[in-house]
């Protein structure tokens, strides 16, 4: 392991749009690669933490038990944990199910919805499939979150600015033009 600060990222109940926005920092990703080492992340496909990380970036909220477990791992291994984007912060689109009982959601998705082909009339129930939570939780209701970067997705410039501040030990100051959505 090198001496560079390490970064881990994950997408929980998200759409990977926030990760796309991370990639959208364009050629600055080369600078980033020089500055940091990527730990557990879809970028390198590591499934487990390799070492303690300076920064953990979480996209998406928690919709199932595995999300909770992963988020817990991130909290354990990362000094600074960031909720990236609206799903991590508010639950986002997945949280639209929150006012509907779980059972009705599953029946609608697998049995009743128009166009569903399900001749055996079963709701998937393999033990490899993580159990769904009763509702979708924003990350800060499950573990302590240190930073929130809003947006759907947050602009690449906002992500870049926050990472640079964090890695250079400067105070993180939100930049108005990167965080306004009107």
């Amino acid at each position: 392991m090198g001496s560079k600060p390490r970064i881990a990222t994950v997408s929980l109940a998200g759409c990977f749009g926030c990760h796309m926005s991370v990639l959208d920092i364009d050629e600055r990703i080369l600078t980033l690669a020089e500055l940091v080492e990527f730990d557990r992340s879809p970028i390198n496909d590591y499934k487990e933490f390799q070492d303690r990380c300076a920064v953990g970036i979480v996209e998406g909220g928690c919709c199932n038990e595995e999300n909770v477990e992963v988020l817990e791992q991130f909290r354990k291994h990362c000094d600074v944990l960031i909720s990236l984007g609206d799903c991590a912060i508010n639950g986002g689109i997945p949280a639209m199910r929150n006012n509907i009982p779980l059972r009705e959601c599953l029946e609608e998705a697998y049995l009743k919805s128009p166009g569903v082909y399900n001749p055996l009339n079963v709701i998937p129930n393999d033990k490899e499939i993580p159990l769904l939570l009763n509702r979708v939780y924003p990350c800060h209701e499950v573990v302590k979150i240190d930073l929130f970067i809003p947006g759907c997705p947050p602009p690449a410039d906002a992500i870049w600015a926050h990472l640079v501040s964090l890695l250079s030990g400067k105070p993180v100051e939100p930049d108005y033009k990167n965080l306004k959505y009107d």
């Binding site: 909770v68 779980l102 159990l131 769904l132 009763n134 499950v142 573990v143």
Partner: peptide, 26 residues
């Protein structure tokens, strides 16, 4: 440790546990 005290995983998965008839491994 790590999880916020206000978050109770056993409560959060109980609906799903009842539905599938097995306990959460977490």
């Amino acid at each position: 440790p790590g999880l916020l005290p206000g978050f109770d995983l056993s409560k959060a998965v109980i609906d799903a546990e009842l539905r599938v008839g097995r306990q959460s491994k977490y």
